[in-house]
């Protein structure tokens, strides 16, 4: 490989390499998003005593492909008096951060696109940008349902971002680093060293906040099928809608990935005599994603004021108390448990 690139200047070769790496991350991500929808339909079907899609290909395995093609061939309708520029910008603004955040995710000790120091901050920043896509989508649609949906979504995401941020503070205290790779390596030494144990309440709160952040059931008031049709993306169709869909599922995978990295030891194996590897990370992510689907199959939608109460009056106090508790414990002789 080096021989080929010697003819090019350094800048071009690194650019090409980076683009190849990006493709190597984004393409499997798209595939996994497609198959996450299949997985979701199967899991929810099973929990409702059905068998889910099984007609297209063996066991319905080509169903996501068929869905994607259907959406591609559909017309994108822009509503009357909608702002066309913003209307088309919104899906892009939703999906771009959802993919951009993957740049700092370490899949393995070496497998990471850009190993930056403040990786965690970067991820938080990126996921926060996504809310603008939702707000703009609701505003540009010129529809009251879309507008209500985006208002709800904005308030919800802002509320849960705080609780989520605080849970990550707990992780930072344990790991003494903002670099995701170092956070994972801080958990090496078997399942007992994972941060999920000392930070168990924070893990639960992180996961519930993650469900709320991604607008998934039971926190899906932004979509609220039975109240406001489809919420912020009610006016979208065809590929523009598919992009929102893609972003939602990509975000689900992203927050599951973060939970696996920060609380469940990332690519580290639970017992020391089995080698570490990317497979462990994928297993943990699938395990967490299953919970997303399980929640959706189980819980009815929260009322809007209940969501706000949960976020502000329960999660934030609990996280604060636990952070103080962790901080105090670190000063005692039990401090080793929290490192």
């Amino acid at each position: 490989m080096d021989n080929i690139f010697q003819q090019f200047p350094e800048v071009i070769s690194t650019t090409i390499w980076t683009i190849l790496k990006i493709v190597a991350i984004v393409f499997p991500l798209m595939i996994s998003v497609a198959y996450l929808t299949y997985f979701e339909r199967k899991v929810i079907g099973f929990m409702q005593g059905r068998i889910g899609p099984n007609r297209v290909g063996y066991f319905g395995l080509l169903q996501p492909i068929a869905d994607a093609f259907k959406l591609m061939f559909k017309e994108i309708i822009s509503p009357t008096k909608s702002n066309n520029f913003l209307f088309l910008l919104a899906p892009i603004l939703t999906i771009a951060p959802a993919f951009a955040a993957w740049a700092v995710i370490p899949f393995d000790a070496e497998l990471v696109l850009s190993d930056i120091n403040a990786g965690l901050l970067y991820v938080l920043a990126m996921t926060s940008i996504a809310v603008y896509g939702v707000i703009i989508a609701g505003w540009a649609s010129n529809s009251k349902y879309a507008f209500l949906g985006s208002l709800r979504s904005a308030a919800q995401i802002v509320s849960y971002e705080i609780a989520m941020g605080f849970t990550l503070v707990g992780v930072l205290m344990c790991a003494n680093s903002l670099n995701l790779g170092e956070i994972v390596l801080g958990q090496s030494g078997g399942i007992s060293q994972w941060y999920v144990w000392p930070l168990f309440p924070l893990f639960i709160i992180y996961f519930i906040s993650a469900v709320a952040e991604t607008n998934r059931a039971p926190f899906d008031v932004a979509e609220g099928e039975s109240e406001i049709v489809a919420g912020f993306h009610v006016e979208y169709s065809g590929m523009a809608f598919a992009v929102f869909f893609l972003a939602e599922y990509a975000n689900m995978i992203l927050v599951s990935m973060l939970a696996a990295l920060m609380f469940l030891g990332g690519w580290l194996s639970p017992v020391e005599f089995i080698p570490d590897g990317i497979l462990w990370l994928l297993l943990k992510v699938i395990f967490l994603l299953f919970f997303f689907l399980w929640f959706r199959a189980t819980f009815p939608r929260y009322r809007y004021d209940q969501i706000m109460r949960l976020g502000w009056k329960i999660f934030i106090p609990i996280t604060l108390i636990w952070i103080i508790f962790v901080g105090l414990m670190m000063q005692t002789s039990y401090g080793e448990m929290f490192h």
Binding site: V43, F46, G49
Partner: peptide, 18 residues
């Protein structure tokens, strides 16, 4: 919530009536 999850979890393995 865990009771509810256990219920749907049981149905996950139940016989499918489709």
């Amino acid at each position: 919530l865990i009771i509810g999850l256990a219920l749907t979890g049981r149905y996950f393995f139940s016989k499918k009536i489709t």
